[in-house]
Design a protein around this nucleic acid. Structure first.
Lengths: 218, 218
DNA sequence: ATCACGCATTCAGCCTGTTGTCAGCAAGCG
DNA sequence: CGCTTGCTGACAACAGGCTGAATGCGTGAT
């Protein structure tokens, strides 16, 4: 697995990184929120290990930001014994699990496996088209290696395309994806969102078939 | 995809069928085991959606029968909240996944995609004629391995031919395909579109039968 | 409560590919 | 050879698609 370790304490960070590498996980280690954001903006991780006490802010804020952007990368919080309030906050903010320091490395391994198992259902197929990587499970896309944030509707559209790359999708079909079933709408919303999507992911990825629909190249 | 929906509840069945059709899946809907057996005997389906509560027996029995006959068509079970035992039975009997009613249509979509992905080994049935591959489901054709875009009318014509390869289609017949029934048009549009099609897919694929009509060679 | 912000929706004007039509040419058939 | 039937290039009209801007709406911050 590809892991991101966000940990301020040097000694713990070192030990964890060595252990995780030994376990066969590609592990990046950063020590503050700024670097973490940068790392996540450029790389898709399978699990994030997050210490809450960070020099440039509180871990929960980082997590909230992630979730608000629709990123659902599994996250395990590493927290000291006494920060129970933080822990609850963390879970509410969208963490998947937490570990109380000091913790056993075997325990960490078990939690990691559990989280991985939980997400094993969809084996996380990274769909690569051109220079765009689409992670359907996590609702994240990378354009030229940089994360790009999509709004709900934009994602709904792209999701349709990504599930059937190369297929031609008609406007009514796409409309269904935007509006939960039935809600008829009389305007060119699909066109508008196609336009916005193209602006974000590059205009050559989605081609128009006049009078027919649209297609994601692949 | 080609789906078989086995569902007793009329309202749910209707909604599901509409949704699935809108998603571009060829969907047959039957309401009992007898009809389901008949349908599966005559048509190969990509996925079966199976409600367990059926008027003439238990869905799991249908599934068991299938698997005993060596049929491995992927099957997703639709089950009410309380039938947990049934669900386990279902998975044991050879189901691939299950959905608990009431479920979100997006959820259904996701499960379908997941199952489809798992069985992605053999993709769409491609109709191959000469060096032209026609993918009816995705509305895409390849000529000598390269994708070729067709306009709406061009596709309407080719679609007619592809559905009855080798058959001779008269001009009035083809005209019906171009213009939703009734809209009479006085000119040589069919000839024009035959010409345009030939330019795109190769002129030897469609042959002219003077005074009679046209035919797609196979 | 108010404000600011971002997302959703609608609309209008511009732009472009498809379409139907026709005319002249080619090919089949007596 | 003459007649019929089919083929195809050209083209004007138009439906369909694109996109910037205005407006509305909901949510989070102050």
């Amino acid at each position: 697995m590809r892991l991101l370790l966000i940990e301020d304490e040097k000694a713990l960070g070192n030990a964890l990184r060595d252990y995780l590498l030994a376990q066969g996980h590609a592990t990046d280690w950063v020590e503050n929120i700024t670097d973490a954001d940068a790392a996540m903006a450029s790389t898709p991780y399978d699990v994030v290990l997050l210490d809450l006490n960070l020099p440039d802010g509180h871990g929960v804020d980082l997590l909230r930001g992630l979730r608000r952007r629709g990123d659902v990368t599994p996250c395990i919080i590493l927290t000291a014994q006494d920060q129970i309030t933080d822990r609850i906050q963390g879970l509410n903010a969208g963490a998947d699990d937490y570990l109380v320091k000091p913790f056993d490395l075997g325990e960490l391994h078990a939690r990691l496996s559990a989280v991985a198992r939980r997400y094993a259902g969809n084996p996380n197929p990274l769909l690569s088209i051109g220079n765009v990587d689409i992670d359907l499970a996590r609702r994240v896309i990378f354009v030229a290696g940089l994360r790009v944030d999509l709004t709900a509707r934009e994602w709904a559209l792209l999701d349709q395309f990504a599930r059937r790359p190369g297929a031609t999708l008609s406007k009514p079909q796409l409309e269904e994806a935007l509006y939960e079933f039935g809600a008829e709408i009389e305007s060119n919303t699909v066109e508008v969102y196609i336009s916005r999507l193209r602006k974000k992911i590059g205009s050559n990825l989605i081609s128009t078939l006049r009078g027919v629909g649209y297609r994601l190249e692949g």
